[in-house]
Amino acid sequence: MSILSLKNVTKNFGGLTAVNNVSFDVEEGEILGLIGPNGSGKTTIFNLINHFFPVSSGDIIFKGNNITHKKTHEIAMLGIGRTFQVVKPLKRLSVADNIMAAAFSRESTFEGAKRVTREVLEFTHLDHVAHQKAGGLPIAGRKRLEIAKALATRPTLLLLDETAAGLNPAELDEAIDIIRAIRSDLGITIIIVEHIMKVIMNISDRIHAIAYGTTITEGSPAEVAANPTVIEAYLGSDYH
């Protein structure tokens, strides 16, 4: 059964159509890659799924419920977690407290939230910086904190927006391991947006490619990588 379906979703910003009639399904337990050149509308799709913006038209179905008009916090409580491409740490709180705040979404007691926080810190390898202020973390840490906060809300679907951007090779490998473990150990379905081909091609089960807000193709990584339109629109410039 598909856990999330976008049905003919469109978003206009004034005259600009950032997302144009996009439809796709995400199957339970899979990792779906969402690719497209800069400005093609990937982040906007995430913003529509968790209702940062209202859609202009179309429907978004999560586990059989129409969530198109639900509020952002309700969507989070239904089980969709997300990270922000432009990271949004709670700057003056410690890393641990950032995660605590998110953990309280499922835990009502201090002790319960504390326990979840410990688990998440360990899972995301952030335990050694737990007591640092989130605003002072280097970029790799802040990206990881985005994932940690989302995980602490115990999502069933996780939207990852360029969580690997700006990482060095060692950090990148660590990030890939963590993302894989999120699916394999925690059983969370993932939609991942990533520019780094090494990551997206290795990690995704399927890939949905867009350009100018419009779907170009969808298929296995190998199929998509071989698709001439994709190569032209996107990979062309990257693969040279």
């Binding site: 968790n50 940062f52 509020k71 952002t72 916090h73 309700e74 989070a76 409580m77 977690g81 997300r82 922000f84 949004k88 740490p89 709670l90 700057k91 003056r92 709180l93 407290d97 605590m100 705040a101 998110a102 309280f104 979404s105 939230a113 906060k149 989302a150 602490a152 809300t153």
Partner: peptide, 21 residues
């Protein structure tokens, strides 16, 4: 308390972790 602080730090980030601001 944790929710208050989250709202203070970033209301958008807060709503994304399920906080009804």
């Amino acid at each position: 308390g944790y929710y208050f602080l989250s709202i203070r730090e970033d209301e958008d980030a807060a709503s994304a972790i399920g906080i009804n601001a």
